[in-house]
Nucleic acid binder design. Sequence first.
DNA 1: CAGCTAAATGACAAGAATTGTTAGGTGGTA
DNA 2: TACCACCTAACAATTCTTGTCATTTAGCTG
Lengths: 157, 157
Amino acid sequence: MKSVEELTDLFRLRGLKVTPQRQCIFRALHAMEGAHPSAEAVHAAVLGELPMVSLKTVYQTLNDLVAMGELRHLGLGSGPARFDVNIDTHQHLACEGCGRTWDVYADLSALHVPDSAMDFAVSATDVVFRGRCASCAPDPDEDLQKEPVGAPASARI
Amino acid sequence: MKSVEELTDLFRLRGLKVTPQRQCIFRALHAMEGAHPSAEAVHAAVLGELPMVSLKTVYQTLNDLVAMGELRHLGLGSGPARFDVNIDTHQHLACEGCGRTWDVYADLSALHVPDSAMDFAVSATDVVFRGRCASCAPDPDEDLQKEPVGAPASARI
DNA sequence: CAGCTAAATGACAAGAATTGTTAGGTGGTA
DNA sequence: TACCACCTAACAATTCTTGTCATTTAGCTG
């Protein structure tokens, strides 16, 4: 995630205005480096500083950031959309037990698409490893919703 | 996708009832082999045969099939959820132009999770190649702030 | 074959997530 | 400073999915 100053400049370059609300959202996202917040989570963080910012404004700014490529929009399954503050090329571990998500850096160099897709121009490859984290031990009861206790090595959601 | 008879047996084994509506949904799904319909699309197909089936019933039956592992629930991005009639291990090409999706069979044997995630039990690996299909030529108007992400050796495959 | 019971159905409406509308406010520039 | 396009916030609408509940029905049992 770029600094608040860089984002400010990028917004101005695009003809978008830089308001206190937006800068507050920038700061909130910066504090969430490595996390995968929902729009609601960002909104909650922003409210701590500017209590009058509407959820709509947060959605709008997040969408602007996604359009600028400064934020990744994640579709990790059901529920609210999640945003990824880390725009480096990376993949995700998604725990089906607690719903948390971690960044991982896997080697995709050996991953190639069959020739049958030759006329398809691939611009991005999304990889999600689904399973259960250490705190959500593999459990035959899929419906069990247990509270997580600990977290894997790099634990930011 | 298993045959209507096999699905009927599986439902009975699970203590689920097999109604005319459900068998009609089974048939509709069978006719969609290889497609990625939304619940609404399945509903539309079913209405051609049984005009009184509610969308709720379709959702219910599709969710049952997903719970039984006879149907895959796809989260390909925004919009309504899509279902995959093909439950073999495979990946997807998702066109950002027309929204269509194709099955592909890529070799994931070389794709492994980094050691940092050793205490994560991976049960499935979702791979989606995003880009543009042959009919949706890359759009020059698109503001390309984002760099191509994760494209292996050959960007066009 | 009749009866029982848990499950399924369908009409309706609620819920969750996201976006449109609109009147008024404001950043950035001349 | 003044202007204007853009932004904000409240509200409502939209889209997708699921809950509620009275009624019906599949499939077992005797």
